[in-house]
Simulated scan of single mutants.
Amino acid sequence: MLAQVYLQPDMLLWHSFGYYHILAMLNCLCSLWFINCTAKGRVAGWLAEDLHLALQTKDSARKLAEFREMWVDLSHMMQQLGKAYSGMYALYCLLVLLTTIVATYGCLTEILDNGLSLKQAGLFIISFYCLTLLFIICNEAHVASRKMGPEFRERLLNVNLASIDSRTVEEINMFLTAIDQNPPIMNLNGYANVNRKLITSVEDAQRGSYSEDALHRALEAVHN
């Protein structure tokens, strides 16, 4: 905001007082999301590191079953996090995108009308700031989902099955099935998947809801 005061010729210092609470809200919500996603990603990483140690114990099947229960709880926590904050972060992402579009449009129109000046630099700072917030939201959710999903599955697939008993092999298969049936995806209550494909995931979520409705109708037809 201090940069805007110096770069915008028609903006005074006391005008910036009306924006500090908005900046605090944007930064705090982004920090809350960052902390939650980072915590879940680190826990998933610790579970993956301890997984091989558990397979080397005598009762490896029981240990693996306990790991599977913890992983399922962690995956449900991640899914519930997106549902609990769905309305707040959906509006957050829309606000950030709208601000980015308006600031970029204002910057381009000012350049076309009046040429380059410090005023365009101020609008560029706003666009860059909003895009940085959106990147942090999408990237942290993507990294946490990847650590809990593909990377965790890869560790299970790399286990040497010849060196373990049949019961442990069965537990590994059950673990892989649990990962497939409980994907650790940060979803805004069905509206969008928060990851690096946030914009396109809105369309994917709509397609998924259409396919689920079609499946329910087909099941009802078969039942009747």
Results as ranks from 00 to 15, higher is better:
Pro9Gly: 00
Asp50Leu: 09
Ser166Pro: 06
Leu32Val: 08
Glu212Trp: 04
Leu134Thr: 04
Leu64Met: 11
Gly122Ala: 00
Gly115Asp: 00
Val96His: 02
Ile199Arg: 10
Cys138Pro: 03
Ser75Gly: 05
Ala103Gly: 02
Asn189Gly: 00
Ile137Ala: 03
Val96Asn: 04
Asn160Asp: 14
Thr168Asn: 02
Asp10Glu: 09
Tyr89Arg: 00
Thr168Ser: 07
Gln8Phe: 15
Met25Asp: 09
Ala65Asn: 11
Glu49Gly: 09
Met77Ile: 06
Gln8Asp: 15
Asn139Trp: 05
Pro150Asp: 10
Leu55His: 06
Ser31Val: 10
Lys147Arg: 14
Val169Ala: 15
Val143Leu: 10
Val169Phe: 00
Ser211Val: 11
Gln181Phe: 03
Trp71Ile: 07
Leu157Tyr: 02
Glu49Ser: 10
Asn114Lys: 13
Val5Trp: 00
Glu154Trp: 07
Asn160Pro: 02
Trp14Lys: 12
Leu23Ile: 14
Leu157Phe: 07
Ala84Leu: 11
Ile137Tyr: 03
Ile22Glu: 11
Met25Glu: 11
Leu47Pro: 00
Asn182His: 10
Asn158Thr: 02
Asn173Thr: 06
Phe128Ile: 03
Glu171His: 04
Asn158Lys: 14
Ser16His: 04
His21Val: 01
Ala103Pro: 04
Glu212Val: 07
Ile179Met: 08
Val143Arg: 15
Glu170Cys: 12
Leu98Met: 13
Ala90Ser: 14
Leu116Val: 15
Gln120Ala: 12
Leu116Asp: 08
Pro183Phe: 05
Ile101Thr: 08
Gly190Cys: 06
Ile185Tyr: 05
Tyr20Ala: 11
Lys83Arg: 13
Ala205Trp: 03
Gln56Arg: 15
Glu170Ala: 14
Pro150Val: 04
Val5Glu: 03
Ala48Val: 01
Glu66Phe: 09
Leu112His: 12
Glu154Tyr: 07
Asn139Gly: 06
His21Tyr: 05
Arg167Thr: 15
Val222Lys: 14
Tyr210Val: 13
Thr99Glu: 10
Ala61Cys: 02
Ser127His: 01
Lys63Asp: 10
Thr104Cys: 10
Thr99Ala: 13
Leu2His: 15
Thr109His: 13
